[in-house]
Simulated scan of single mutants.
Amino acid sequence: MPQRISLEALAALPTVSALNVSRGGDQVAFYADWTGRFELYTLNLKTREQRQVTDGQAPKAIRAGFVWATDDSRIFLSRDQDGDERQALFTLALASGEVTALQHAPQSMDYAVDAHPDGTRLLVNSTRGGQMNVQVYDLEKEERRPGRC
């Protein structure tokens, strides 16, 4: 006879979400709530080494995925800026774990879609201009400033 699992036990199972393979194909990044909140992890597909990359900087609720940079050195993600519930763009350096806010229009919602192969631009779904449209975010020209996450 199959063992019964309680509803409470099912609800307590961890969530793994937004699996995304790196451009080089040697890593996968994903969100998981193993610590009690969502954090970003990477898994080396050859060595099976898993690493927690964020420590409180990941979105509290997963509303959007994330995008690998062309050279796999960083990840672009969306989360709210200082608790304002408006999705802003951030870059996460994988080697150091440093999270930097990219320029954010306070009334907009910005979601990374894809990084251009030349590494200088990011395709973004954004409400800048009043409604959701696809826009190009120029990583070389837009002002960067340290982000508070």
Rank of each mutant, 00 (worst) to 15 (best):
T15K: 10
L7Y: 13
A58L: 10
R144C: 04
E142H: 13
G97A: 05
A95P: 03
P146L: 11
G119D: 14
L7A: 14
L123F: 05
Q81G: 01
A61S: 06
R63T: 01
V21W: 10
L92T: 03
F90E: 02
A61F: 02
S96H: 09
K141A: 11
F90C: 06
A12L: 09
R79E: 00
G36P: 06
Q131H: 11
F38D: 09
G83R: 12
K141N: 11
V99L: 06
L45P: 12
D82M: 04
A101W: 00
S17K: 14
M1D: 09
Y111W: 03
T54N: 06
P2A: 10
E98Q: 10
Q131T: 11
E98D: 11
L102K: 09
A61H: 03
L123H: 07
V67Y: 01
N133F: 05
P2F: 05
F30R: 10
A58G: 12
F66G: 13
L139D: 05
A105P: 00
T15Y: 01
A29S: 08
H116N: 14
S6Y: 07
D110W: 01
E142A: 14
R37I: 02
D72K: 08
S73R: 15
H104R: 00
T35L: 10
R37M: 07
A112H: 00
A61I: 04
T15N: 08
V136K: 06
I75V: 15
Q87R: 09
A105T: 07
P146W: 02
L19H: 07
T127P: 06
Y41L: 09
V21A: 13
A93R: 06
L19E: 10
E39V: 08
T35G: 09
S73H: 14
G65S: 14
S108W: 03
Y41D: 10
Q27M: 13
G147D: 06
